[in-house]
Amino acid sequence: MGYAYLLLPLAIYVLVILIPVIYAAWISLFDWDGVSAGKWVGLHNYAQAFHDPAVRQALIHSIVLVFFYSIIPVAIGLILTGIIARHPLRAVGMWRTILFLPQVLSVVVVGVSWRWILKQDGPFNQLLRAVGLGRWTKVWLGDFTWALPTEGALGTWMLSGLCMVLLLAGAQSIDTELYDAANVDGAGVIREFLTVTVPGLRNQIVVALVLTFAVSLNNFSLIWVTTQGGPGQETQVASTLIYSRAFIVSAVGDASALAIMLGVLMMVIAYGFTRLSERA
């Protein structure tokens, strides 16, 4: 009986996920440019990936972005929630609507906007000059040292509000008597934060971490619209590397192997996350 309900979801799943993944696993065993006949190479594409400096570099960049997309927004959200949520808040709806707004915008809109804001004659450098930091002005997304942290900061801008919305909502369900009890015990602001706010928000913290982590590894579009992985390879991450290998340099077998490896890695990490949240 239950199978009838699964017909539509399973059909979509088989067509869009299962068949492509099996097909990609097959292709990953070939040296193939996507057009001419492929050459069987066995596991060579996988073995090569472990020694490929470009792959290692892209992974390191991805990890740096996880820090900016996931750790910093959750930390900002937690600290602000700790300060703000100790008492009922007025106009909750208005704050929520504003903080969530970046989630509603197309990543292309975000990329196009920030690309101009961060240009040499853009508003950000104008602001730096206005406050006397004129010697810090640069083309932020075109600078070899600063392009990657700048991409990260865009992620922090996009996702901090989302984390705050989640954490503020969770904080409303914390029993206010816990704060009073902590005060009676003479707990300071920091003790109160660590013993009442953080434990009370455990579930929301896990949700926020998982959500932002997924966004950070799905960040192809923002990077592609702003820098296409450049300057040089400075903002090349796992997803842009796979795309360029498949469609720019036409190394389809190689790209498929990388895609399979990234997929497996993500499943392992996700499994670790669930185990962790069950234990907590």
Binding site: I17, P20, Y23, A24, A246, V252, S256, L262, G263, M266
Partner: peptide
């Protein structure tokens, strides 16, 4: 399981199919 896999990982194989 499809939820944790980056879209790029799926879209490249979808293209080939």
């Amino acid at each position: 399981s499809g939820m944790v896999v980056p879209y790029v990982v799926l879209v490249v194989p979808i293209y080939i199919e």
